[in-house]
Design a protein around this nucleic acid. Structure first.
Lengths: 145, 145
DNA sequence: ATAATAAAAGATATTTTTGTCTTTTATTAT
DNA sequence: ATAATAAAAGACAAAAATATCTTTTATTAT
């Protein structure tokens, strides 16, 4: 088991790729995205449709259409993508899966697990969708395989 | 999506419960465990069978039988349970699900995600199976719902 | 030895996640 | 207006995770 679902992994990779291409002035078709982030094209399409419906990514149909990010969207935190796709369980859930685990009624792992959750929350809130554009353009980072 | 699989959550809760009862000198039947940690009994049985096969938990069949931990097992880290049940992806996997992500070929989240993984690894390696026995006996912690 | 107990093992079922295919709708260029 | 393009939507399929049921095996107490 990975931390994020496949769906969420694909979403994050796609978002970084589209952000980079947006930064370079392009819109990107679903095929190009899927190829570059190594994901199943029709499945990724579903994911991006969902993000699009929620206004997290922009898209236009037709020739020269595709997905892109406007400036406002580029500045959104990655956390918004994760929440849209996987919900907020990762930010708030109990490590042992206990619904009623809380400060006043803690599970054994509560205190230590809170640190993990906080780290994840910090990571996702402090990473904007466009944060890695330059790094990606310069080939500093990988997004496929 | 939670951090750990349902299977793993049940395993961790069960292990803490059995440890506590072991500490009090009892063996515990699968029904009692399932009731106290609020998990489906036959499914939990499968999980404990697996842990038993790997020698992580002790069991005896027949009257007065059940699951328990010997002293050596009580001192094992929770990480061993997680690994047995969910594998080691949570300790080593890339946040974006990239197989070839590494120090030399990092994904955009690599550095930040490493901190998350380290926190999880630390938590699971520094939590022994028997660590919360007294806290559980004194009612300081919850394991059900 | 026998009966009762409880885990182990095997087979099966359901649900969720992941993945695919087809049709429709919107946009653009001609 | 028409044809070409590309996303949106809907229906469907496969795989994995979760859950259940039945039979077998080992142990204990009588």
């Amino acid at each position: 088991m990975a931390i994020f679902s496949k769906t969420c992994e694909y979403a994050m990779r796609a978002v970084f790729y589209v952000a980079q291409r947006s930064h370079e002035g392009y819109r990107v078709g679903i095929r190009e995205i899927a190829e570059h982030i190594n994901s199943p094209e029709p499945f990724l399409a579903k994911i991006l449709q969902k993000l699009s419906r929620e206004g997290l990514i922009q898209s236009v149909k037709g020739p020269n259409g595709g997905f892109y990010f406007d400036t406002a969207s580029l500045n959104r935190p990655l956390a918004d993508i994760v929440t849209a796709v996987d919900g907020d369980e990762i930010f708030t859930g109990c490590g042992l899966g206990l619904t009623y685990c809380s400060e006043s009624n803690p599970c054994p792992l509560h205190d230590e697990f809170k640190k993990v959750r906080n780290q994840i929350t910090h990571m996702l809130n402090n990473t904007s969708i466009g944060k890695f554009n330059m790094g990606l353009i310069k080939g500093k980072f990988t997004l496929n395989k």
